[in-house]
């Protein structure tokens, strides 16, 4: 962070994020921005495991695990949201560890099918274990986060879909962004790039592929769990349909369309793929056709995603020297 330009840009971005609710006051657009934020956290978590060349199709399942854990911890165990938020991340991460340890030995399509199966198992468990997860009816009436009060000084409460949720999410985004950015810049991140490009060579150089993959998978799922917890308390209702295979595919599309080369690509992907369906909403049933065509056009003509193309056009120098 020595570069003054970088500090300036970061501060600018931070100021823009803080100011945004004053510019965009329409609740519809605020809701869309929050959706973008959640998609960003999920897709950037997915990008972590993609940086060693593995594609997980269970991201939505871990999102769901976080959402359901948080709802249950708050509503049945009576915990405070502020405790259940990190806890649901930890639960997701723990399950990711259990699943990842055996499954990450599998490569490519085999990893695809095993994560897809896990995602289906998770969805079916949410559907079938009615006493705990509410079955197909889901869980409704999830309370808002408890107000933060420092006696006599100030108090922040969370009205339904209020702007306070926006600031909470921005905080989560900044934390996850920072963590992922540090991973990317570290020696660890560079090793991951090496694993993706030449796994045999990396192994012969003494890089522990398994350890690297597991850590990335677990961190990605931790943030998916956090995003789930936030989502549950923001929506106040969750059901098993929210966390299906198709949502996992959406996060993958976001990551690839935006460009997995840089975390900024994920931002672009999340923003574009949230806005596009709203922009083409008037097309009604043609909407999916436009969406599909958009995905095809980007894949065919921007091989490294939209970020890759922007980088080429504006000759942006890579912020980090690593591969991810």
């Amino acid at each position: 962070m020595s570069n003054p330009l970088k500090i300036f840009t970061s501060l600018g971005a931070l100021a823009a994020m803080l100011m945004l609710p004053w510019v965009i006051t329409d609740p519809r657009y605020r809701d869309l921005i929050i959706t973008m934020g959640i998609y960003f956290i999920l897709a950037s978590g997915l990008r972590l495991i993609m940086s060693v060349g593995q594609v997980s199709f269970a991201q939505a399942a871990f999102w769901g695990i976080g959402a359901y854990s948080s709802a249950i911890l708050v509503m049945k165990a009576g915990l405070s949201f502020w405790l259940s938020l990190p806890l649901s991340g930890i639960i997701s991460a723990f399950i990711a560890l259990l699943i990842g340890y055996p499954c990450l030995r599998l490569k490519g399509p085999y990893f695809f099918i095993i994560t897809m199966s896990f995602g289906e198992v998770a969805r079916l468990v949410f559907t079938s274990w009615i006493d705990l997860f509410g079955g197909t009816n889901g869980i409704s009436g999830i309370p808002a986060p408890d107000p933060i009060t420092i006696s006599g000084v100030f108090s922040i409460s969370f009205p339904p879909r209020g702007v306070e949720f926006y600031y909470l999410l921005m905080l989560l985004i900044i934390v996850s962004f920072f963590v992922m950015y540090r991973i990317e810049r570290s020696h660890f991140g560079k090793a991951c790039g090496a694993i993706r490009e030449f796994d045999d060579l990396a192994a012969s150089l003494g890089i522990n592929i398994m350890r690297h993959s597991i850590i990335l998978f677990v961190v990605g799922c931790f943030f998916a769990g956090i995003a789930g917890s936030f989502y549950a308390h923001y929506m106040t209702y969750i059901g098993p349909g929210y966390f299906s295979f198709h949502e996992s595919l959406l996060f993958l599309i976001i990551a690839v369309i935006g460009g997995t080369e840089s975390i900024f690509g994920i931002i672009i992907g999340a923003v574009l793929l949230t806005i596009l369906p709203e922009f083409t909403r008037e097309a009604k049933q043609f909407e999916s056709i436009i969406y599909g065509a958009f995905v095809l056009v980007v894949l065919l003509f921007m091989p490294s995603g939209i970020w890759g193309m922007l980088k080429k056009i504006f000759r942006i120098k890579p912020l980090s020297k690593s591969y991810i």
Partner: peptide, 20 residues
């Protein structure tokens, strides 16, 4: 990966086209 996602896009368009 891009080919997989492209097939997903194709599938989406075919499905909606068939619906219409």
């Amino acid at each position: 990966l891009a080919a997989c996602l492209a097939s997903l896009g194709v599938g989406m368009m075919l499905q909606t086209g068939a619906l219409l």
